[in-house]
Design a protein around this nucleic acid. Sequence first.
DNA 1: TTACCCATACCGACCAAATGGTACAAAATA
DNA 2: TATTTTGTACCATTTGGTCGGTATGGGTAA
Lengths: 204, 204
Amino acid sequence: MPRDGNITRDKILMTSMGLAISQGHVATPIDEVIAQVGITKGTFFYHFPSKKHLAMAMIEKFSSNKLNTLNEYCAKATKLSKDPLQQLLIFVGLVQEQHAKLEQDEIGCLYASYCYENQLVDKEIGESVSLTMKAWQDKISEKLKEIMVLYPPVTEVEPDKVAGMFLTALEGAYIMARIMPERDAVETYLEQYKIYLQVLFKQA
Amino acid sequence: MPRDGNITRDKILMTSMGLAISQGHVATPIDEVIAQVGITKGTFFYHFPSKKHLAMAMIEKFSSNKLNTLNEYCAKATKLSKDPLQQLLIFVGLVQEQHAKLEQDEIGCLYASYCYENQLVDKEIGESVSLTMKAWQDKISEKLKEIMVLYPPVTEVEPDKVAGMFLTALEGAYIMARIMPERDAVETYLEQYKIYLQVLFKQA
DNA sequence: TTACCCATACCGACCAAATGGTACAAAATA
DNA sequence: TATTTTGTACCATTTGGTCGGTATGGGTAA
């Protein structure tokens, strides 16, 4: 075998993901990607038959990353506490922590970027995306059901929607981080979500 | 005076705002705009010297609309109840209502669309945007301070951040509406926000 | 009233640059 | 040498933008 093309392929993926998150996919010409990676057009199109294929590969990669973090953080959280409510709070905390390290223009969601510029490229891509999101929602929802057994909520709530609110807050925070002058929107609004959980399951 | 050019200008603005929200600004060629409006390129560039100028005009228009709704809904809410907590809940309800009428691809925020595709075009534009958002946040924050006098919150919270959470939930909901199969994300997650307020200010 | 004026509003052909994509030769490694 | 990987030069289309000219219609002077 000649030199490993997967390295180049991965570099293209990583670079274009960064660019897509910070300035959008359509707004990022291939020339900019290859310039930043340090390759030429021929190489690019050897690895990705078209820009659309790149888009799909990016989504796939992003999804797989997201699913990995989900499992990783779940495992960490269950290891750190026996109490389901504490586990969930720790889980959210881990996500907060993850974002604290990132630079301003690294903060964002590829899905959001895509869905705002062209209804998620494709139907099948759209399904794969919603499945990944649903995976997060379901995992949190399951945990919420455990919590609700131990701590009856102050008012009746649907675990699915409280779980969805986490993703909503996160996606919303990404946008706030870009629009508002304060940088720590993710930290701030996931904190709000934690407070929501705490008051919801507060014992009298 | 010849026929009123402002009509055309407004039509261009409206059309391109719709397109920008549904598929992004960069992803919308001028040709598509003028085709939909039913004018020619010459006319377009007579009204807007460049695509960037169009972008700025759109943001301005969007901001002015947003400020109008803010005032309108505030007025309505204060008229419908004397209790500040009820007023805020009504306010959120009005926003929910507003979105219930919209079509799928009309749901979204121009700011979000812009900030995901090119860091809000310009510095000055960015400031104008954050000012509009801050206007909403401040108005809600003020109301929250009134509320906190009457109903001591279950746990200590910063009104500014609870207020910001409204915008966060709304922006997040827009994205959820596009990513997830369920259409009524705005309804759902603003409802979650209302629940948050209710449990936060619940009387023992 | 009418003829003309002129600013405003609009048209449509054209241009240059950007952008996605191709063809094929040259390298590199096993 | 055979296969995979990369570089170079080029092409076709799209896209933002220009330019000269035309239509509209109210004011105004004869």
